[in-house]
Amino acid sequence: MTLKITNLTGGYGRIPVLQHESFTVENGQTVALIGLNGAGKSTTIKHIMGLLQPQQGTITVDGLTLADDIQAYRQKIAYVPELPVLYPELTLKEHLELTMMAYNLDPQKTWPQAQKLLKIFRLDNKLNWFPINFSKGMKQKVMIVCAFVTPAQLFIIDEPFTGLDPLAVRDLLKLIQDKKQQGAAILMSTHILTNAQQSADRFVLLNHGQVRAQGTLEQIQKEFQMDAANLEELYVQMSKEDAQG
């Protein structure tokens, strides 16, 4: 089991955004974190990354907490943020070199994989360019390449499809599938439920900082006795029930 969140309560102030949140993301599995704006998706991710401290509960990656060994914990994780974070003074090549240094990777062994990813996302002829000047979609591709060049066991992908063209979306979904087959765990937060249903094995539906439901689509349908044909219909039905409640 790679990621385990147990009874997580936390947020940005005294009033918690997350309340007693618990779920797991196991090796060889993609879990989609679903929720409306303000449901707690980004707050959950920030807690996993160690950017926020839990008020209660625990987060472990392969049994390791952030407090046990901060460097070892973070090297188990690769992160693709919703908004690309790039350094204006670094070229694409230098961003990749920085990533390799952060994960203590051997450049000679890692560059062949980097070149493969760059070619997939059509960035292989832009190594000496400054990504800060790229389009939104190209910047997102840089973040994807930097994350997937690592040997992380847990990939956290926050709204990955924003700004990507259809070809890049297809390439990313294929990359996620390949990593999953290699035994990695994938946690993906997205509003695009069609892509989530296509690529995820399980779903965690958040509402007001709490886990409203989790499991496969069939399990959630059975638990809540809903006849929704797909994930989007199911989520709309559950959101309406919560609003009426």
Rank of each mutant, 00 (worst) to 15 (best):
Gln29Thr: 09
Gln219Leu: 12
Gln244Trp: 10
Leu51Asn: 02
Ile157Leu: 13
Gly137Thr: 08
Arg74Asp: 01
Ile120Ser: 08
Leu51Ala: 10
Tyr79Val: 04
Ile15Ser: 10
Val80Phe: 01
Arg122Val: 11
Ser42Leu: 03
Gly183Ile: 13
Ile120Gln: 13
Leu92Cys: 02
Phe203Asn: 06
Asn7Glu: 12
Ser42Gln: 04
Glu218Gln: 15
Tyr12Gly: 03
Lys136Val: 11
Val142Lys: 01
Pro166Tyr: 12
Gln19Phe: 03
Gln244Met: 14
Pro107Tyr: 05
Lys4Gly: 07
Lys174Leu: 12
Leu92Gly: 01
Arg122Phe: 03
Lys46Met: 11
Glu21Pro: 00
Lys139Leu: 04
Gln108Arg: 11
Lys240Arg: 15
Gly11Asp: 03
Leu127Ser: 10
Leu18Gln: 02
Arg202Trp: 09
Asp124Glu: 15
Val204Pro: 04
Gln55Gly: 03
Lys126Glu: 10
Trp129Ala: 15
Met143Trp: 02
Val204Trp: 06
Asn133Trp: 08
Leu52His: 04
Ala229Leu: 14
Leu64Asn: 00
Gln198Ala: 15
Trp111Arg: 06
Met226Cys: 15
Lys180Asn: 08
Val25Ile: 12
Thr6Glu: 10
Asn128Leu: 13
Pro151Tyr: 06
His191Gly: 12
Gln221Glu: 13
Val236Tyr: 12
Ala78Lys: 00
Thr194Pro: 05
Tyr235Leu: 10
Asn230Gln: 10
Ile70Asp: 09
Leu231Gly: 03
Ile144Leu: 07
Gln210Met: 14
Lys174Ser: 14
His20Gln: 13
Ala102Phe: 12
Thr2Phe: 00
Ser239Leu: 15
Ala102Leu: 15
Thr9Trp: 05
Thr190Asn: 12
Thr24Arg: 11
Leu164His: 09
Ile220Asn: 05
Ala102Asp: 08
Asp158Ser: 11
Gly28Asn: 07
Lys109Phe: 01
Glu241Gln: 15
Met100Ala: 06
Asn37Trp: 03
Pro151Met: 07
Asp69Gln: 05
Phe130Leu: 09
Gly137Gln: 05
Ile186His: 04
Thr190Tyr: 11
Tyr235Arg: 02
Asn125Leu: 11
Thr91Leu: 05
Arg74His: 05
Lys109Thr: 07
Thr24Ile: 08
Ile34Tyr: 00
Leu193Asn: 10
Thr190Asp: 13
Pro88Leu: 06
Gln182Lys: 15
Ala213Pro: 11
Ala200His: 05
Thr58Lys: 04
Ile220Val: 14
Glu159Asp: 12
Gly137Met: 07
Ala147Trp: 01
Thr58Ile: 00
Gly137Pro: 03
Leu205Met: 15
Ala78His: 00
Ile144Trp: 02
Gly57His: 06
Thr110Lys: 01
Glu97Ser: 10
Ala67Trp: 01
Pro88Val: 02
Lys126Pro: 00
Ala200Met: 08
Thr91Asp: 05
Leu105Glu: 02
Gly13Glu: 01
Thr30Ala: 10
Phe161Ile: 09
Val61Met: 06
Asn195Trp: 09
Asp227Arg: 15
Asn207Cys: 14
Ile77Asn: 00
Asp201Phe: 11
Tyr73Ala: 02
Asn7Thr: 03
Glu82His: 06
Arg170Trp: 10
